[in-house]
Design a binder for these strands. Structure first.
Lengths: 143, 143
DNA sequence: ATTACTGCAAAGGATTTGCATGTGA
DNA sequence: TCACATGCAAATCCTTTGCAGTAAT
């Protein structure tokens, strides 16, 4: 993680932005998540370490990181979630029964996105697709 | 449309719910849309015919219709949109540049959902997937 | 020394809710 | 008739913003 941190700090410096104590904590809090961290979870983690950090700062930092492409956000069932951006594209399976989160490699969507580009001229955002459904356990218990 | 209306009215009656003037107007307003109608658009259409209908009623009716599976809702870029439920599964391509909306037949996702079920045991909700991206025109103008 | 960033509190916008009234079956 | 549905307004929730003070470079 440390050389990754160095990279992003250098990048921010080069662009004239500042690396603050708060931003470091907030980015750490995003990294600690399993991949889909809600605002509340991030805010709680930050608060645990530094109770004076305000919600406004967390909101602003998250927007900032998204704009800097260090974090990606998605909307799952009306709730905004955040995840550290990685170079490898992958997608998520979300169980609407129990909240289980699974990963889906980009490879399985290559054909689809190729089709969309060829037939519709549509360039799909393939970096963070969310597919909801039911995991094996939740299929057993009829909703 | 009329026999469809009869069907849903009968269904609601059987379940002990009531078919009111407001609910009819609200469902009509959802039907008039191209498939992704925002709350504001629905409320505006209803207001045009009956200015006394309140937002609360529209919110309540939409939730009600979703629960009755007469309407499906999705979240596009943080905005909730509504669409009449149809038997035919289809998906939507949304241009994040200009808001253009395209349809994508379910057939193109059959392979993917079959794969998910086979490999992950995951039963994907294939009734209303939203894929964002850029349409041909908006690809020209670099965002 | 700049000026980006933060904390606080207030504002803003969207959605929900309590309650008295109205209305469909 | 009587429970369901509505309108109104207040309440609630989430997010953004203005501004004065703080801190990174």
């Amino acid at each position: 993680m440390s050389h990754y941190l160095t990279d992003y700090e250098t990048m921010l410096h080069q662009r004239g932005f500042r690396v603050t104590h708060q931003r470091r904590m907030i980015l750490d809090a995003v990294c600690e998540g399993d991949g889909h961290t809600t605002f509340d979870a991030i805010y709680a983690r930050v608060q645990a370490r530094c109770p004076t950090v305000s919600q406004a700062t967390v909101y602003r930092a998250l927007h900032f990181f998204v704009k800097m492409h260090l974090v990606v956000s998605a909307d799952i069932n009306g709730e905004q979630v955040y995840e550290i951006a990685t170079s490898r594209h992958h997608h998520h399976l979300i169980c609407r029964g129990c909240g289980w989160v699974g990963n889906l490699d980009d490879a399985h969507l290559r054909d689809l996105s190729a089709h969309l580009l060829r037939e519709h001229g549509f360039r799909a955002d393939v970096d963070h697709l969310v597919i909801t459904g039911l995991c094996p356990e939740c299929q057993a218990t009829t909703e």
